[in-house]
Simulated scan of single mutants.
Amino acid sequence: MGVTVAVGLALATAQLARGQYVDEQIGMVTPAENDPDDVIDRTRLSDAGADFAARCEMYLRQFGTSTAGHEIAR
């Protein structure tokens, strides 16, 4: 859950500050995208329902293995 919350905070901060979202370490979006609204549009989950922890896991699983070489725990 921590990574998902951190990403959410970073995206919200970038939106509020009218700044850029930089994802150099995790590499979630390929090609890289700096506009927070575009990152949200590209990574938003399409379905609703499951509890918060399950949604966090679903969010991260859509990225598979990150460019940092860390596989998402199963």
Score class of each variant (00 low, 15 high):
D41M: 05
A53R: 11
T30F: 04
R74C: 12
V3A: 12
M28K: 07
Q62P: 04
G2T: 13
A68W: 02
A50W: 11
E24W: 04
I40L: 14
A14Q: 02
V39P: 05
L16T: 13
A10M: 12
G69R: 02
I72Y: 15
R55Y: 14
T13H: 13
R74P: 14
T4A: 15
A10L: 09
L45N: 07
I26P: 01
L16V: 15
D51E: 10
Y59V: 10
A53P: 03
T65Y: 04
V39C: 06
A10I: 01
I72E: 08
I40E: 03
G2C: 07
D41C: 04
A50S: 12
I26F: 13
R55I: 13
T65C: 04
D47E: 15
T13D: 12
E24H: 03
R55S: 09
D35M: 05
L60Q: 12
F63P: 02
Q62L: 01
P36D: 03
G64N: 06
A48G: 12
R18H: 14
D51P: 03
D47A: 15
V39T: 02
R18K: 15
Q62N: 00
T65L: 09
L60P: 07
E33K: 06
D38R: 15
G2W: 07
M1D: 09
M28R: 01
Q25P: 05
R74L: 12
S46R: 15
D38K: 12
E24D: 15
F52Q: 10
V7C: 11
A17H: 14
I26W: 04
D23T: 10
F52T: 13
A32V: 02
V22R: 14
T4V: 10
A53N: 07
M1H: 05
T67Q: 06
E57P: 03
R61M: 02
A12R: 12
V5F: 03
M28D: 05
G64W: 09
A73F: 08
V22S: 06
S66M: 10
P31T: 05
G8I: 02
D41I: 08
A32Q: 11
S66H: 04
T65H: 04
F63N: 06
G64Y: 01
